[in-house]
């Protein structure tokens, strides 16, 4: 009786192990079904909505859409965005508020997309870039508006 049980257990053990090994063997011999991506050699294809970092798009004539209303600064939960404004005098001689620097601190950003949702003039968007490593922490503090850029015509 004891021997019978013993051999039954041995049989069960070997058969259950072979069931698992058969599956492993299947993928060992079917290398085409392996889906591993060799990352630095082949770059991943990311979805359009993938949130990598905040950028401010500029057009060909170096114009952006940011009015400096600080809605994104208020919407940000981490204090990632800081907008410094200045007063500009336009062609008609009137004073107008415009952005001086749009400071974006990537090291604080959690890519929650709340700033992009809050923006009333679609001035900022999320880009796909995800390789953010740098050698110096200070390089992560970015100014999003390009030097010499100004606000697009017709954006209030």
């Amino acid at each position: 009786m004891f021997l019978k049980e013993y051999f039954k257990t041995v049989y069960q053990t070997i058969s259950s192990l072979l069931t698992g090994m058969r599956l492993t063997g299947y993928y060992f011999t079917h290398t085409k079904e392996i889906i591993t991506q060799q990352y630095p050699e082949t770059k991943p294809v990311l979805a359009d909505r993938f949130r990598g970092e905040v950028i401010m798009p500029h057009n060909e004539t170096n114009e952006h859409r940011c009015t400096g209303c600080t809605a994104c600064e208020l919407a940000c939960p981490n204090g990632t965005i800081k907008i410094v404004t200045k007063n500009e005098i336009n062609a008609e001689g009137k004073k107008k508020k415009a952005i001086d620097t749009f400071v974006y601190r990537l090291e604080l950003c959690t890519m929650c997309n709340l700033c992009v949702q809050a923006c009333p003039s679609d001035a900022i968007i999320m880009s796909n870039a995800f390789e953010h490593s740098v050698y110096d922490r200070r390089l992560l503090t970015k100014v999003l508006n390009k030097p010499g850029s100004k606000i697009m015509e017709g954006v209030e």
Partner: peptide, 23 residues
């Protein structure tokens, strides 16, 4: 990633509905 824009920390469900429409 396609619908929510992130793989782990989505922040896709917001008060009132969802952040974007489906892909």
């Amino acid at each position: 990633e396609e619908t929510c824009g992130a793989r782990l920390t989505m922040n896709y469900i917001v008060p009132g509905g969802v952040m974007f429409d489906l892909h």
